[in-house]
Amino acid sequence: MSIKSGIPGQLKLRPRADRQTDRAAAAALPAKMTARGVKVFYGAKQALKGIDLDIQENRVLALIGPSGCGKSTFLRCLNRMNDTIEGCRVEGRIALDGEDVYGKAVDAVQLRARVGMVFQKPNPFPKSIYDNVAYGPRIHGLASGRDELDEVVQTSLKRAGLWAEVKDRLREPGTSLSGGQQQRLCIARAIAVSPEVILMDEPCSALDPIATAHIEELIDELRANYTIVIVTHNMQQAARVSQRTAFFHLGEMVECDDTEEIFTNPRDERTQGYITGRYG
């Protein structure tokens, strides 16, 4: 099997020289978040074995790799969601704008407002559509008064591409929406608190292809305002939505590069094997 046959069809190939200059430019982009030597232990079991990774501002970083490789674990380190797991220990340094997120000066609650998250399974609160989106701004005191809150809810729903579908039924429960709509509601809920980074943990794995396409378009639009990290099992999706891709395998980050580069010219044998579908 050749490498080329494994390249997702949607990927637009450009001349190699162009890609090289892009790579150089990309490397120079400022990093919104940086991870250095991140190790994670669940009890005695080590899930991550020292990850070094830069997450650049206003770009989409895709984390790919076979199941159990630690990509979701890494994602959950970025907003300290791992804190809630009993027996989970994180070593190394993760910084947001140069500040250690595991440092004493950083509050997990504030961090999670700055680094929002969208989960694998759509998990709207069993409340109205309006309350789902308004919850974050309410608890953080981001909107003063009813009108401002309405405004935030409307903007968030519009950005999530859901406004047209739900504007007449904001009082209905969020759980009454379809799966794809629920996931967009969760994205609206996440962006309502104006985070700087959005983490997405396989956001489309529970959705049908049409809903997936919707979300992927949305991710591309959101890139203008947010830094996005997305975990996905779907390599076409990684190729379609991301600018950079990191390949994880058995708790290690094998390789991280421009998405085009990873899919056309992977340097590591394991990456090549994975993207050509030989395992994973």
Partner: peptide, 10 residues
């Protein structure tokens, strides 16, 4: 998932 959703938005 409800706890995660709430914790996830801070």
């Amino acid at each position: 998932s409800i706890r995660e959703a709430a914790l996830g938005i801070g």
